[in-house]
Design a protein around this nucleic acid. Structure first.
Length: 112
DNA sequence: CATTTGACTGCGT
DNA sequence: AACGCAGCCAAAT
């Protein structure tokens, strides 16, 4: 058989990936969680692993609700994420860095 | 199966 | 405060 099911990207074992996406889906609009927080809910400390999942499978999830410790938006997505924050009313503060702003974790960090 | 990679984090210089 | 570095974990190659 000549080929794999047409045009379908090979899906990894759904376990960690699905778990991460499920947690992200639980973050309420207007709130956020850090990569480390998401990992912690899964009983893991793999903040980077969570980032990997978001980068690869998070395109259809509310990925902007997962931010870096320190309140900075996902690397390389500050502009796109900001539209969502503005839309959801997520509290932000102006910043001088390239992101231009920073999420106020003290006010909207999600706690499971 | 070994190595590399990355939308991370915290601590030290 | 900028920069480097080591620790961490799962997926990708």
């Amino acid at each position: 058989m000549p080929q794999h099911p047409a045009g379908r990207r090979p899906e990894p074992v759904e376990g960690f990936v699905e778990a991460v996406l499920a947690v992200v889906a639980d973050i309420p609009s207007g709130s956020v969680a850090t990569y480390g927080d998401v990992a912690a809910v899964l009983g893991s400390r793999g903040a980077r692993a969570v980032g990997q999942v978001m980068a690869r499978y998070g395109s259809d999830a509310p990925w902007w609700r997962v931010v870096r410790a320190g309140g900075r938006p996902p690397t390389g997505h500050a502009a796109t994420a900001r539209r969502h924050y503005d839309d959801e009313g997520t509290p932000l503060v102006a910043a001088s860095d390239d992101d231009g702003y920073r999420i106020v974790l003290a006010a909207c960090r999600w706690r499971p």
